[in-house]
Design a protein around this nucleic acid. Structure first.
Lengths: 153, 153
DNA sequence: GTTCGCGCGGGAATAATTCCCGCAGGCGTG
DNA sequence: CACGCCTGCGGGAATTATTCCCGCGCGAAC
């Protein structure tokens, strides 16, 4: 993981559709060396895969919500059950086990408030062992998550 | 945006490295039709781009933090200044203007608690107009954000 | 009813790119 | 020095993207 790998990773996080020849030129590397490095990063698991980045607004998703969840019990069983249930719902985009006051943080997207209400009823309210739930709405996305900083690695 | 477009979008969000021929077969479409649809989605802006998905652990990033920020003033100027400053720091991966008790929600990643402390000092503490800041640590990622649900569009 | 235009899909040809191989050279380390 | 490691170069095969052309179905206009 030297300077070139880091530059490569940052370039690929920003745009993975460029050709190897282009990337190589930007990094002042030969195409074959560039290709070898990408392969190595993929095999080491640093690069997990490639994905299209979508514009949620053009998908009709105007509402993005962070939901803090507190469970009634922090027993291993209760948490396992909760986490399994989270996996079953596609509307829950992301879930973290948290330190601090709340137990879990969820991220949910919806077309509008009406649909969020439906998700709330059909999905969030069905999660097992929940004692409290607090939704915070994102009014505007100031900065988008576009990958991790690679410079210190 | 018919059934095929939605399936295409979901497939590309999961893995954009598959060849068009493969995608076409999965969608029961010809490669040329599949290619045309992808191009159209790119041109419409539904697909913003393509990115490599990295494993933060293999990058040495073991700490992920959500930071709630409250400003001293909700004036337009204070918010503008804050938002510009957020854009200047690469360690702030994501930022949302929120409804509810806190004003902003930030996402930050760091190698360890020591580095988070450094980011806290050098970056978060320098954000202008902040009255309160509350960090919540992600102990474990239960479910990863892998794109938006496309089915209702 | 016919005819035109239009959108969309299929198939094949073409161009570009990736992928994989071997080889020689530079460079630091034991 | 010898060795391992990485780089650059080149070639060649396989895969893939991109384009072109044709045909079908459908609706509108006359």
């Amino acid at each position: 993981m030297d300077r070139a790998d880091i530059a490569l990773i940052e370039a690929l996080q920003r745009d993975s559709s460029r050709s190897i020849a282009e990337l190589a030129e930007a990094l002042a590397l030969s195409p074959s060396a560039c290709h070898r490095r990408i392969r190595a990063l993929e095999e080491k698991g640093v690069i997990e895969g490639y994905a299209a980045r979508l514009d949620p607004h053009r998908l009709g998703l105007t509402v993005e919500v962070f939901v803090e969840i507190t469970l009634t019990s922090q027993s291993r069983e209760a948490m396992d059950r909760f986490e399994r249930a989270v996996g079953d719902f596609d509307d829950i985009l992301e879930c973290h086990l948290m330190s601090g006051s709340a137990d879990y943080l969820l991220r949910v997207a919806a077309a509008d408030l009406g649909q969020y209400d439906a998700i709330h009823r059909d999905c969030l309210a069905r999660l097992p062992g929940v004692s409290a739930m607090r939704s915070s709405f994102s009014l505007r996305r100031i900065k988008r998550f576009a990958g991790y900083p690679a410079r210190r690695a």
